[in-house]
C-alpha cells in the first residue's frame, strides 16, 4: 500500500470526509455507550439536550466555549505558520496571574480604563511566555514542541507556588486561592440577567480579527507563506524568523486572553484548577476547525457542547463522563485521518 497525492481534491473529498469523520465519531461513541449499558441513541440525545436543550444548558456551553475559542485561536494561528505551540495552557495561566495581580486593587482605576489595561498586560505576558521557546527555535533550532510542552508544567508549578505564597488570599481560610478581583476588574455581563460575560464577545471579536489578519494583512500573508513552505518563503525574501516571532506574540497573547476571560469574567479569582486543560483542548479545537479562525468558534462550541452535555448525560443515563474525553479523542483522530485522506488517496500495489 502507498499514498498518492490527490492533485485536485473534489468538494466531496474536502467536505464529505470531515463530515464522515464526525459521523464515525458518533457511531463509535454510540457503541461505547452500548457497552456501558445504555441505549446508544438516547445517550447521544441526552448529550445534545444537555448541551443545548435549555437556556441554562446553552449558557453553560457558551461559557465553556469561551476559553476554548481563545486557546483554539492561539493554536490555529501558531500552527498555520508551523509554529507548534503546545503551551497554550501555560500562556493561559500567565494571563490569569496578570489579571489577578492587576485586578485585585493594585490599580484603582475605573473599569473602562482598567479592563483594557489588564487585557493588554495579560496578552503581553502570554506573548513573552511563548517568545522564549520561539527565540530558542529561531536562534538555536530547539524543538518548540518540547519546550512549550514542558513550560506548561513549569508555569503550573509556579502558579501553585504563588497561590501558596505571594498571591494567597489572606481571607481564604488557608485554601490555595487568590483574593477576589475588585468590581472594576470584572468583565460585565453581555445581556442583563443572563449568566454570560463579555469574555465571549471578546472571543468572537478575536476570531474575526484573526481571520482579517490572515486574509487581509501583509503579516497574515507572510504567516501563511512561512507555514506552507519555509524554504520558498526564505528564498522570496520573507523574513522567516521575524514572522515566527510575530506569530508567537499573537498566539501567546490570544491564549493569555483565555486566562483573563476566565478570571475576570467567570471565576473572579484564581485557583489552580481554573483550566481543566483548555490549552490542550485548544489543539483539538484548532485541528477540528482545520485551523480556520472562524471555524474555531464552531469547533469550540462543538467541543464545549460535548463536555457540558456529557456531564448531564452522565447523571441521567449512568454512563461515565469519560465518554466525552473519548469522543473528543476519537473526533480528533478521525479528523486528522480525514484531513490526510483529502490530500492523499490510498493505492494498493
Amino acid at each position: 500500500m502507498r499514498l498518492e497525492p490527490v492533485a485536485n481534491p473534489t468538494l466531496l473529498r474536502t467536505v464529505g470526509l470531515p463530515a464522515l469523520a464526525l459521523f464515525g465519531t458518533v457511531v463509535a461513541a454510540s457503541l461505547l455507550a452500548m457497552i456501558a449499558g445504555a441505549q446508544p441513541f438516547s445517550v447521544l440525545g441526552l448529550i445534545v439536550k444537555g448541551a443545548f436543550g435549555s437556556k441554562f444548558a446553552a449558557l453553560e456551553t457558551l461559557n465553556r466555549a469561551t476559553p476554548l475559542i481563545f486557546t483554539g485561536l492561539a493554536v490555529a494561528v501558531a500552527f498555520r505558520a508551523q509554529l507548534w505551540n503546545i503551551g497554550a495552557e501555560a500562556q493561559l495561566y500567565v494571563g490569569a496571574v496578570v489579571t489577578v495581580v492587576l485586578g485585585t486593587g493594585a490599580l484603582a482605576w475605573p473599569a473602562f480604563a482598567l479592563l483594557p489595561t489588564i487585557a493588554v498586560a495579560a496578552m503581553l505576558a502570554g506573548a513573552v511566555v511563548l517568545l522564549v521557546p520561539t527565540f530558542l527555535k529561531t536562534r538555536f533550532g530547539v524543538d518548540e514542541v518540547v519546550t512549550t510542552l514542558l513550560l506548561n508544567f513549569v508555569v503550573l508549578l509556579w502558579v501553585s507556588m504563588l497561590l501558596e505564597g505571594a498571591l494567597k488570599d489572606p481571607m481564604g481560610l488557608g485554601w490555595p486561592k487568590s483574593a477576589r478581583l475588585i468590581a472594576e476588574a470584572r468583565l460585565p455581563r453581555m445581556v442583563e440577567g443572563l449568566r454570560l460575560h463579555w469574555g465571549l464577545g471578546l472571543a468572537l471579536i478575536s476570531a474575526l480579527v484573526v481571520w482579517v489578519i490572515q486574509r487581509r494583512t501583509t503579516l497574515g500573508y507572510e504567516m501563511r507563506a512561512v507555514g506552507l513552505n519555509k524554504e520558498a518563503a526564505r528564498f522570496a525574501g520573507i523574513p522567516v524568523n521575524t514572522v515566527l516571532i510575530k506569530t508567537a506574540l499573537l498566539s501567546g497573547g490570544l491564549a493569555a486572553l483565555a486566562g483573563f476571560s476566565e478570571v475576570a469574567g467567570l471565576k473572579g479569582s484564581l485557583t489552580l484548577d481554573i483550566s481543566p486543560g483548555f490549552g490542550y483542548t485548544g489543539i483539538i479545537v484548532a485541528m477540528l476547525a482545520l485551523l480556520n479562525p472562524l471555524g474555531v468558534v464552531v469547533a469550540a462550541l462543538f467541543v464545549a457542547g460535548i463536555f457540558v452535555g456529557a456531564d448531564s448525560m452522565s447523571r441521567a443515563a449512568g454512563v461515565p463522563t469519560y465518554l466525552a474525553d473519548i469522543m473528543l479523542a476519537l473526533a480528533l483522530l478521525m479528523m486528522v485521518l480525514a484531513i490526510m485522506l483529502t490530500k492523499f488517496r490510498v493505492r494498493r500495489d
Binding site: 501563511r224 507563506a225 506552507l228 513552505n229 524554504e231 520558498a232 518563503a233 528564498f235
Partner: peptide, 9 residues
Amino acid sequence: HKTGTIADF
C-alpha cells in the same frame, strides 16, 4: 516546486 513557488498558494 520547492523554492520558486508555494504549492498550495
